[in-house]
Design a protein around this nucleic acid. Sequence first.
DNA 1: ACTATAATACTTGTATACAAGTATACTTAA
DNA 2: TTAAGTATACTTGTATACAAGTATTATAGT
Lengths: 243, 243
Amino acid sequence: MSESKDYLYPQKWLSKASTGDRIAYELRMRIISGIIESGTILSENKLAADFEVSRSPIREALRTLASENIIRLEKMGAVVIGLSEKEIEEIYDVRLLIETFVFERLIKMDTTNLALELSKTLEMMKVAIKYNDADEFSYQDVMFHEAIIRSIGHSYITMIWNNLKPVMEGLILLSMRMRFTEKYDDFTRIVKNHELYIDAIQAKDRKLMIKSLHENFDDVQGKVEDLWKSQQMLSKGVESQDD
Amino acid sequence: MSESKDYLYPQKWLSKASTGDRIAYELRMRIISGIIESGTILSENKLAADFEVSRSPIREALRTLASENIIRLEKMGAVVIGLSEKEIEEIYDVRLLIETFVFERLIKMDTTNLALELSKTLEMMKVAIKYNDADEFSYQDVMFHEAIIRSIGHSYITMIWNNLKPVMEGLILLSMRMRFTEKYDDFTRIVKNHELYIDAIQAKDRKLMIKSLHENFDDVQGKVEDLWKSQQMLSKGVESQDD
DNA sequence: ACTATAATACTTGTATACAAGTATACTTAA
DNA sequence: TTAAGTATACTTGTATACAAGTATTATAGT
């Protein structure tokens, strides 16, 4: 990739990914972070030149991003939609929707193994905090919720999650990197909230789960703010690059 | 396309579609209808030969179908998942989920225009019934629900719908074609139920909406049965075609 | 100055070519 | 007969070439 800027997406998570996937991950991060502004028109040829690959993987990446609703494929070029405050809230609407659905199913299941897995993941999150590893923390955070969602074995709920996950992950990554530098205390609260979630699942306590979910989602406002900070910070070091 | 069998997907709906989209639509119908059985391994080369096109549009189609969860891309070939009874119920779970969400938003909005549009669509459904046009009926049925879902302007709910719609549409097409030949009386009930839905939206009556939704979903069991009939009928005229 | 038309520089969609990896089947050795 | 290893035929991923369509720009005519 021609521009020697640091990648926004952790490269070590891409060990087995195809070129198309790599580019999708990187483009996604640039769009979410605001480095590529909403309204920008992306051309397959330009992108191929920028990333120094052929159009094949570029096309693949663009189709992926289009299915995630952060770009829109048009006749002449792909238009960047990006994430405004509205979109971020909508993403969390959907997450709230599916996690609530999932919880109703969980109540009727044996959740012993799930609770165990979640505890393990939470332990890993604590270690990540201890060692100031924002990326690892984000990864485990995403895995925490993925574990819950997948646990009910509902293929179409999982499908929705699969569509939502990449953008979600990017959002969390940017937010957490910011917090690790500026709002370190947040993590105590985040960990506590996840513990609450595990308790709710173990006790199959609907009220507790709702409470935990809501505290979680009150945090969304924080994420939105983090994202703006992140966007400002990132765009300072970047010249306008669409000649 | 080499096999001169009739297409399952209405060709006139594909006037502006690319080759890749056409193939996605046709493959999807064959998978939903069971002509291509669950477990089958699809190879890009074979499909390209069958449809007499290059691998480019085939790859595009396969990625689309994978995002809809009816095939699974693996290292060596795409594995057909298909629709068992479980998957069909899951699809309706999701539709129930998002339509319930949508209704909660609708309650806070002005629904005059929407109700008008739905009435128009319902009129068209009636005409389609009168002229025995199963495909047109299906189209309007899908549009009915799409109009509702899009009306709240929630891009990520719309995104879920976009992912669900093609399979949904295929399912409805097959089911309605069957009913037009065997269970003509069903349509009186379907129309009535849609009228109920419009009433609920106009009156912003949550209870009525739930009632209508549930009658609608009780119908799902019917759809499942239709699909099996459809699969049996279709597979009678087809030799095993995977040499 | 302004409109209409034509040339040009872009865009995507599809076909083809090649490379690298994987499963299968065959051959060879014990 | 069985096990190991090799050859082969298949798979996907990426690069490239070409065709058809669209927007823009420049040019010509009034």
